[in-house]
């Protein structure tokens, strides 16, 4: 087991208006894992991840990032370790050139000269938008703007990258792009992704946590989580379509999550049933 990057101990959080959004959360996030956080709107997903980079501080309990208590650091200081990509790219884009937008974060961290240039170039190349560097960010389409937002965080080289609903409003191509980007980034980063796209979650996540009513209802690998239909129903979540199809067929394994697995299962199921005849 590798070292945890983020440790959450008995975290309870109440908003100033009096709404308790998190209750007694205990969680460890390990280096290199792709953690998906799923659950209904208002179940506390965003409130939880906002604690990881100090945007919110616990009302009770502690959040430790590399053994540093977030209560003692500002978000700007924690942004070296934990990068947070917001849901709506329009909330953060303010520069008139794409590369200037990407530079903003690294500059805040004190990067200069060739080092700055290199990190901007790398970040734009990972998302495949190096060619658009001289464009005005607001001239780009939503897919590209989202990638700019992600790239602007990558340029800061954080250990952990949080993606808050990276596929909202994206077309099929955009979702595929985000998926391959997560796979690529997970080689060097710990990824935390909030998503309502179960298909994406089932393919990229190494662990899924299901939030319900300000608590973690249960967690496990996608294969373990997406077969617990009774619990999922309680949270109004459903396994990805292909998994539901597999679960509805008699004699199929219940933990089929991808189309490839489905085809394999189809073949082996056929040979099993022909043997029994």
């Amino acid at each position: 087991m590798s070292e945890p990057v983020i440790k959450i101990k008995d975290l309870t959080f109440t908003y100033p208006a009096g709404v308790t959004a998190l209750r007694e959360i205990n969680l460890e996030i390990n280096k290199g894992e792709v953690l998906a956080v799923i659950g209904q709107n208002g179940s506390g997903k965003t409130t939880l991840v906002k604690h990881f980079n100090g945007l919110l501080k616990p009302s009770r309990g502690n959040v430790l990032v590399n053994n540093n208590n977030t209560k003692k650091f500002t978000t700007a200081q924690l942004s070296r370790t934990v990068g947070y990509v917001f849901q709506d790219p329009d909330d953060q884009i303010f520069m008139s050139k794409v590369y200037k937008e990407i530079e903003f974060g690294p500059k805040n961290l004190g990067l200069k000269g060739s080092e700055l240039k290199r990190s901007v170039k790398e970040a734009l190349e990972i998302v495949g938008l190096w060619d658009l560097r001289r464009k005005h960010p607001l001239d780009l389409n939503l897919n590209e703007k989202k990638l700019i937002a992600i790239s602007s965080i990558i340029a800061m080289k954080p250990e952990v990258i949080i993606l808050d609903e990276p596929t909202t409003g994206q077309d099929h191509h955009g979702v595929k792009k985000v998926e391959s980007l997560i796979n690529e980034l997970s080689r060097n980063h710990t990824i935390i992704v909030i998503s309502h796209n179960m298909d994406l979650v089932s393919r990229v996540a190494s662990r899924v946590i299901v939030m319900y009513d300000s608590r973690i209802l249960f967690q496990g690998t996608p294969k373990k989580v997406f077969v617990k239909n009774a619990l999922l129903n309680k949270t109004y979540l459903k396994p990805p379509p292909i998994a539901r199809l597999a679960q509805s067929i008699k004699g199929f394994k219940r933990d089929v999550l991808t189309i490839d697995e489905f085809i394999d299962e189809l073949i082996s199921n056929k040979s099993r049933s022909s043997k029994s005849h």
């Binding site: 945007l55 978000t75 942004s79 805040n108 965080i153 800061m156």
Partner: peptide, 18 residues
């Protein structure tokens, strides 16, 4: 509320507001 979200987004990119 929009302002609050934008501040949070920029803080997450290392903007020091103190």
């Amino acid at each position: 509320s929009q302002m609050a979200t934008i501040i949070e987004a920029q803080k997450s990119r290392g903007l020091e507001t103190k």
